[in-house]
Nucleic acid binder design. Sequence first.
DNA 1: GCCAACGTTGGC
DNA 2: GCCAACGTTGGC
Length: 151
Amino acid sequence: MSYWLFKTEPDTFSIDTLKQQKVSCWEGVRNYQARNMLRDEVKVGDEVLIYHSSCKQVGVAGVATVVRARYPDHTQFEPDSGYFDPKATPETPRWFMVDVEYQRHVPLIKLAEMKQNPALAEMPLVKKGNRLNVMPVTAAQWQAILAMAGE
DNA sequence: GCCAACGTTGGC
DNA sequence: GCCAACGTTGGC
């Protein structure tokens, strides 16, 4: 079982949205490094930190689990979608997604606080210029982050 | 809104 | 295959 961190913009899709939907596909990842992880490494049963980016309070907002592994991201085939990719076909999809299930909220673990934690120094998240929106989390990092939320 | 960092594109 | 131009991300 592996741990991950998924970024989302809460104005579009937040931990609250996921709680309401209970299970949701994680569409719209259009970064090759992230795509490769969704396609090859993220498995059913893996646990995921839900991270809110590009908002007033950036940080980890909750926890989810993976309930369906890789399958083609349908938005790449939809011309009206902002995620449409004209080079993708159903026979040769370029982008993949997984489904996640809501587990729980956590008291917001702010990015600024995570940057202060030496145990998290190696996370891509806290490094300068980081743009990766799906990233692996080690067991030690996972525990260190949740410890910051009092768990 | 600003701007640094980074990824992608496309000409050569 | 290189690299400049451009667009996007994302924290502040």
